[in-house]
């Protein structure tokens, strides 16, 4: 996969600093899986994070803290191997990327329970708890009204392509938009465009599609 459009460096840096809400983090992770260029930048951002940490004024640490830690070294090493591995397992997280997106380049999106939200546009919301991530399926040739963004919006193409003022976006490409950008995407004609969209949580998302469709008379349920 040869990507032409990457997340902004500021977005990668935000991911490295754990400042991206879950929906943005998931989308960026889906891109990074397949983008060595951005993985290198992420590592650089993390390396700089470690350098900056080492340049902080050291804080005063209480004397008890070290003793407490060394006491815990003893305790934990007394656990038998079975118990220890149980502890480790309990600490492991569920994967950042949800199952539906784990293998997105090969994933069959036809079986997704799509909901029609406007002519030529279907949506499937991915449940991430507090933040919003949606799949959009846009019929070939569908033209969206020009729109701006109140906050941040990240879009990644999974299938097909679309074009706007910025360029032509293909699978793996990320459009990293902020409040200064207006654009008018048009799904290319050959096949439906499926994309992953993350917007600022939680309120702005609900208005995203209506805002997108501003001036058109459709009802959204």
């Amino acid at each position: 996969m040869k990507m032409q459009y990457h997340p902004d460096d500021a977005t990668l840096l935000g991911f490295a600093n754990a400042t991206l809400e879950r929906n943005f983090a998931v989308l960026v992770a889906c891109h990074l899986r397949h983008c060595p260029r951005c993985r290198q930048r992420l590592r650089q951002a993390e390396q700089l994070g470690a350098e900056l940490m080492q340049r902080l004024q050291p804080a005063e640490v209480s004397a008890d803290c070290k003793q407490a830690l060394f006491d815990r070294l003893d305790e934990s090493t007394k656990l038998d191997p079975a118990e220890r591995s149980a502890t480790v397992t309990a600490q492991q997280h569920e994967p950042l990327i949800p199952a539906l997106l784990q293998h997105w380049p090969e994933q069959d999106f036809d079986t997704v329970p799509w909901k029609r939200i406007a002519p030529g546009i279907q949506q499937h919301k991915i449940d991430l708890g507090s933040s919003n991530l949606s799949l959009l399926r846009i019929a070939p040739g569908t033209c969206m009204p020009s729109h701006g963004h109140e906050g941040s919006e990240l879009t990644m193409i999974l299938r097909g392509s679309y074009s706007d003022e910025i360029g032509r976006f293909q699978p793996g490409d990320v459009a990293d938009l902020d409040d200064e950008i207006e654009h008018q995407p048009i799904a290319d004609r050959d096949e439906p465009c499926i994309c992953l969209v993350a917007t600022d949580a939680p309120l702005r998302f609900n208005s995203w599609v209506p805002r997108l469709m501003q001036g058109l008379v459709f009802s959204f349920d």
Partner: peptide, 30 residues
Amino acid sequence: SYYQGKSHAEIAQSMEIPLGSVKSTLRLAF
């Protein structure tokens, strides 16, 4: 971003500058 762990939107709010400026400023520094 690094030390306080603020999101771009939170930085924009506390510096009272547009989100796009936060991102371009971070980009330049990086």
